[in-house]
Design a protein around this nucleic acid. Structure first.
Length: 215
DNA sequence: TGCCAGGCCGGGT
DNA sequence: ACCCGGCATGGC
């Protein structure tokens, strides 16, 4: 006897296989990507990150030294580039305050709840960005909820329209073990099934691997 | 060719 | 406490 939440995971993993998230070469790069991908297609984020990588700017020290205007120019393909340059600078300030040399191991060594509050205190970092950083950069057992999570759960009648971030997060965390690898894979699989079968327009529910689970 | 993508903030009711 | 406009590029 397994819960719907467990069944969904089993079906998605069987159908798609491991997703190997987060697509990044370092925890710092995960943090940058988490901000850049806000309401933005990953293909565009990928270009922005490539720009930074080409100029060896994917480290705390280099980005911290880079003027905001120049940073904005580099990340232009990711959209909202002025806003995101500012948000990245805000995040870098937090890191500098918590760990002067940008030592992420030190920064991440705080208690998960404390760290989450610190991330949320940064202007431009909300629940999804904070949790993405906690899970995919800091490897803390936190479930990441996003627009796809809402859409997939809604489509299968598992939540109501008013369901908020916290409620969706609890839906998963209350019925799963606190397992970093499990949370990692599960969120990635939801994004995958969302992209392929549960887009806002032209959803393809007929071929969705989850169609059998609910009615 | 308008709509959408792995959000979040701030100002107005 | 909601509700909504702003932020912006590239793909389809």
């Amino acid at each position: 006897m397994s819960t719907v939440v467990e069944q969904i995971y089993t079906v998605l993993l069987e159908h798609f296989g491991p997703q190997n998230w987060w697509p990044a070469e370092s925890p710092f790069e995960v943090m940058v990507g988490a901000v850049l991908t806000q309401n933005t297609n990953w293909a565009n984020v990928s270009r922005a990150i490539a720009n930074l990588r080409e100029e060896n700017l994917l480290s705390f020290q280099s980005l911290d030294c880079l003027p905001e205007q120049l940073l904005a120019e580099k990340i232009r393909p990711s959209g909202y580039y002025n806003l995101k340059a500012k948000r990245l600078k805000n995040l870098l300030s937090l890191i500098r305050n918590e760990a002067p040399d940008g030592d992420l191991d030190l920064f991440f060594s705080a208690d998960t709840e404390v760290l989450r509050e610190k991330l949320l205190s940064v202007k431009g970092i909300g629940p999804e960005t904070a949790d993405s950083i906690l899970l995919y950069a800091a490897h803390k057992p936190v479930f990441v909820v996003d627009a796809y999570t809402y859409r997939v759960l809604m489509r299968h009648g598992l939540i109501g329209e008013e369901t908020d971030y916290q409620e969706m997060q609890s839906l998963f965390m209350d019925s799963l073990d606190n397992d970093v690898q499990l949370f990692n894979e599960y969120h990635a699989l939801i994004v995958r099934v969302g992209k392929e079968f549960c887009k806002k327009t032209k959803p393809k529910c007929e071929q969705c691997p989850l169609r059998e689970i609910t009615n």
